[in-house]
């Protein structure tokens, strides 16, 4: 069972879809990991115990902190979202496609990884390469609770566009068997992805997509999103509910809480006051 409110991490890494100035101010503010942990603590103290995060290398510092303080965070949960795409995109520009894949494969350690790696690359066996890349990204979460593991939207939507459906199945199977976790999919094209996941018989999938009152980055259109929420079997995680600040908080939460079948809302905030404000709005509008 997923929590209703999940805490996101865009604000920590200078990601702001509205303004580069704001993004830089946030990057400055969260330069030291202590500042990130202070905000996560504020969220935790408001009862928000799930951190839906990228696999940015700095997240490993958060992982170390949580591992080191089990008494402070007895029920802390991570929902990792992989991969941190810019790392790969910049590597592709520099080293080419295959070079980039090779660079991120584990280069030492387990014999298993080495064998899976070399033969997979040679045989174009995507299953082997994919599972290795997943394992590399999951390393930082060792010993922590990761009941849901997400595939990031750039990858999901690339695979969706290419018609590379098998990769979703590979991801789902590996996440289940190796991490005893549920697969989650982040997308900007929710109705189209839902069709493919249904076709693959990935039942009741967890799909995280923009769901906001103004239809911002809801590809396929608001009507298709609303129909999917009403009529189809999946667990929707709503992100970008404020549309990067374009919708006032109260109006945004009131609208999203009125949509049927939303399992969770993921939101980011940098201050205790904003975290509390969002939590209170959700309690007000989202009653069982």
């Amino acid at each position: 069972m997923m929590d209703r409110l999940l805490f996101g991490d865009n604000q920590f890494f200078g990601v702001n879809h509205m303004s580069e100035e704001k993004a830089r101010a946030q990057a400055l503010r969260f330069q030291e990991i202590e500042a990130v942990i202070d905000v996560l603590d504020a969220a935790y103290d408001e009862g928000i115990r799930t951190f839906m995060c990228t696999t940015h290398e700095r997240i490993s510092l958060v992982c170390d902190h949580v591992r080191a303080h089990p008494d402070r965070y007895p029920d802390y949960t991570f929902y990792p979202g992989m991969p941190y795409a810019h790392k790969y995109a910049n590597a592709v520009t520099e080293s080419g496609m295959l070079g980039a894949v090779k660079r991120f494969l584990p280069d030492e350690g387990l014999m298993d990884a080495a064998i899976r790696g070399t033969t997979s690359v040679a045989k174009k066996d995507i299953e082997g390469i994919t599972t290795l890349l997943i394992d590399a990204e999951m390393k930082m979460f060792q010993g922590l609770s990761t009941p849901v593991i997400f595939l990031q939207n750039v990858v999901v939507d690339l695979l969706l566009g290419l018609g590379f459906k098998e990769a979703f199945r590979i991801f789902a199977d590996h996440v289940k068997s190796r991490y005893d976790a549920e697969p989650g999919f982040i997308t900007m094209n929710m109705p189209a992805l839902l069709d493919v996941l249904e076709e693959l018989q990935i039942d009741n999938p967890i799909i995280c997509s923009n769901i906001n009152k103004i239809g911002f980055r809801m590809c396929g259109g608001s009507a298709a999103y609303e129909a999917a929420l009403r009529e189809r079997q999946f667990r929707a995680v709503a992100m970008s509910v404020f549309a990067s600040g374009a919708i006032p908080a109260r109006e945004a939460i009131e609208w999203v809480c009125a949509q049927p079948n939303i399992a969770s809302i993921v939101f980011g905030a940098s201050s205790k006051a904003n975290i509390r404000g969002t939590r209170e709005l959700v309690s007000e509008f989202w009653q069982d």
Partner: peptide
């Protein structure tokens, strides 16, 4: 958010 037209597929 004001200036962007919706597209059929977002990558």
């Amino acid at each position: 958010t004001d200036l962007t037209e919706p597209v059929w597929f977002y990558l």
